[in-house]
């Protein structure tokens, strides 16, 4: 269909203006199998590939009037419609996973951090806000937050110095940071 570009545009025009069923059938037979090839190459799920063809072809039937011949060949527009349908399908199918919450909020706390790059100058408005929030914490939590984050002691060092189990240090740190986070969100 190398010189068919104008033909496709004409079909789209007939569909938009006259709801021309014959034009749509011709367009469908030209395009749908090729969208299917494209979909199968890009999506590994056969039912998703089918959906991509169906939605693309439905849009061509319902939205042919949106094709603007002054902006390029019909085949390019049809391609971009198919491509955008694919983006939408992927957004929809994956969006459930994007609201992961909970336990993985604190991965960094499970490992000892190195604070070798502590610069002497504390700055930013932030410092004051955080200082204030540390002061609001229960004293044993505040102590551990200060030691770990201000003085750069490792959690193990803190545990040794305070003669506490490492797990207690970790959980106090965790609680302290959680409270600070809640205060910030208020």
């Amino acid at each position: 269909m190398s010189e068919d570009k104008d033909v496709l545009a004409e079909l789209l025009f007939n569909i938009a203006e006259n709801r021309c069923r014959d034009s749509y059938q011709t367009l469908f037979k030209e395009i749908a199998p090729r969208v299917l090839s494209m979909a199968r190459k890009q999506l590994f799920d056969e039912s998703l590939a089918y959906e991509m063809v169906q939605e693309t072809m439905l849009k061509l039937w319902l939205k042919a009037h949106l094709y603007d011949a002054s902006k390029g060949a019909a085949v390019n527009w049809i391609f971009s419609v198919a491509r955008n349908v694919k983006f939408d399908l992927l957004r929809r199918s994956k969006h459930q996973q994007d609201w992961i919450q909970g336990d993985d909020l604190w991965p960094i706390l499970s490992e000892d951090r190195d604070i070798n790059d502590n610069a002497p100058e504390d700055r930013e408005i932030i410092s004051q806000q955080l200082q204030y929030q540390i002061e609001q914490l229960p004293i044993e939590q505040a102590d551990i937050v200060r030691r770990v984050y201000l003085h750069g002691e490792s959690q193990q060092e803190v545990a040794d110095k305070l003669e506490l189990p490492l797990g207690t240090v970790k959980s106090r740190l965790r609680l302290g940071l959680k409270k600070m986070k809640e205060a910030l969100d208020d």
């Binding site: 069923r21 469908f28 090729r34 299917l36 090839s37 089918y50 169906q54």
Partner: peptide
Amino acid sequence: AFVSAAPDNHGDVNLDDMLEQIM
């Protein structure tokens, strides 16, 4: 995708049904 590529052989996908549903 649309000019050079050969169309897919439909396999078990029934495109005629799809066409009818859309219309």
